[in-house]
Design a binder for these strands. Sequence first.
DNA 1: TTCATACTTGTAAACGATTACATTCTTTGT
DNA 2: ACAAAGAATGTAATCGTTTACAAGTATGAA
Lengths: 335, 335
Amino acid sequence: MDRKTATIQDVARIAGVSTATVSRTLSKPSVVAKSTREAVLDAVAETGYRVNATASNLRRQRTGTVIVLLPNLANPFFSQILAGLASVLTPAQLGMLIADTQSGPDPEERLRHYLTSGQADGLILLDGTLSPEALAIPGRPPVVLACEWMGHDLPSVRVENARGAALAVGHLARLGHRRIGHVTGPRGNVLTETRLEGFCAALQELGLPLDDHWVLEGDFSMDSGAAAGRAWLGMTDRPTALFLSSDEMAIGFLGEVQRAGIRVPEDVSIVGFDNIEIAQHLSPGLTTIRQPRTQIGVRAAELLLAMIETGSLTGPSELIEVEFIVRGSAGVPPA
Amino acid sequence: MDRKTATIQDVARIAGVSTATVSRTLSKPSVVAKSTREAVLDAVAETGYRVNATASNLRRQRTGTVIVLLPNLANPFFSQILAGLASVLTPAQLGMLIADTQSGPDPEERLRHYLTSGQADGLILLDGTLSPEALAIPGRPPVVLACEWMGHDLPSVRVENARGAALAVGHLARLGHRRIGHVTGPRGNVLTETRLEGFCAALQELGLPLDDHWVLEGDFSMDSGAAAGRAWLGMTDRPTALFLSSDEMAIGFLGEVQRAGIRVPEDVSIVGFDNIEIAQHLSPGLTTIRQPRTQIGVRAAELLLAMIETGSLTGPSELIEVEFIVRGSAGVPPA
DNA sequence: TTCATACTTGTAAACGATTACATTCTTTGT
DNA sequence: ACAAAGAATGTAATCGTTTACAAGTATGAA
């Protein structure tokens, strides 16, 4: 058909109107007369015109992009969140620029860069390790935190992390466990700390002992879960149950101890966090705490969208419920 | 400091030169005199000026974006490929717009849309289900296929899929298996077909029987692997080993049969495909075929980058080697 | 008839960069 | 000393939209 893509000028000429009218027809159809609207739409169809997003963005002083900053793109936990984000952002004509903080040298510097570069209309931050101080930049775009964050009133989407930990402890206690261990995420991470606090508070409430040796530090990865498994195997005074701060770590732990001949849940009970897809396909199925990841993405995107449209830097936060999922990996303690 | 972000005009004024000189200083420093260059760079530093990518793109008739089209964002298999893509595209000032074909109704229509909308300087296609006919669009941007694709000379990054299947069959045959089954991906998908062909050819070459009942159709997902597991459990004439076209399916299969009391590899041997991270953390570890996913992403991005820079619609293809990974899930057949 | 009001539409100035072309100032060879 | 070539810089058009403002037309009330 057309050698080059049609511009708004072409459409205007063919429809016999001005470019202003074409633009209006496309953005606010209600303000143009029905007959003109039809003529314009016909011309659009005839030329196959599509608005040039770059020109539109330039004129409207926006970028058409939001940046999503997450710790590690290769972590499957985030892919569903991304899917949720995309489902809201794409219809709003916003592209997602995805960047991870681990690939570069200085994550906080990266964050600062994105905030100052003016390359985005907004930013969604999924990394709980970055300190919120880095957000104190004048003229920055709106930011939504899609993870727990303490002591700041920035808009965020969080899940009931402490409650999730309490649910896990409660379940294990009800099964009869009195020696319950915990594998944390990386220290300093807000998710780590919140879940750890929830864990300790729940133990205390139930009058259960807390041994420092039973709290192992991980980093949410399967490898660190496997390392925790080796540590557990080497203990003289093993807890009979463990709550792990991520399903990935639970998987690593499970595989490691199973390969050492330990039976789950007969010899040790484990509870994970996240309910990633694979949890139900393990043997035994992984008892865990479900986070609705797609929903987290959707809500974060909606929050950000509202801020972008109103030009506001603040907004409401959202607390998303968790749900306890009982499968086979937690049972009664060994006799 | 500045209420608004500085423009090239501000820099020009402060440096006492024209905007043309500022632009040249930033893009081709060699053509401006040393003294002016320094003055300009000082002014840039003073104002904190950063070029407005939108304006630059508009003038240069590009978009600064490449679209990555994949079947399903929530599939962890793709996240590492994305990481590889990002590591090349980001330094080249290109953002990635990630879209999945499964969320909308008509994937081919989506593809056509992206190709005609002029919203991207290039496109990377990771979905082997889409037919290449949809690419026959005049004036479309360069495209790189990052998956197997038959009968087309479009630039692509592929892995040795058929050889991977042959490696799996060879390994199982060497262990003594004579009744080997296969769980495929979705029919019509090029990966599915190529691996199936490789599987059949290898069986034939080794003089092993091929029973149609032993070839089950899956869709690469864990759920479909679990379904295949149930189908296998219900067979009267079970194969002693199975090659599954994805690790995810292998995981689903493994969990399903293990929960039914089947021991792996004593009762049945399984081999997967992909070597996703979790493969090594299962119990038993999953014997599989490794695809270097980050590398696939990196090479695809490099290919596309070269095409964008030369303005060419064709380019070389790349074949990436696979590697057989021996773990515990395949052993000698039961007596 | 006449004026106010509401509707439509057009005019033209941005948005912020890039770059072809023109201009000015140096060199350098003869 | 002068023309030609080269180097450095400036001028201004351009990329494709959006939108404030102006201008025109129709409608209805007085």
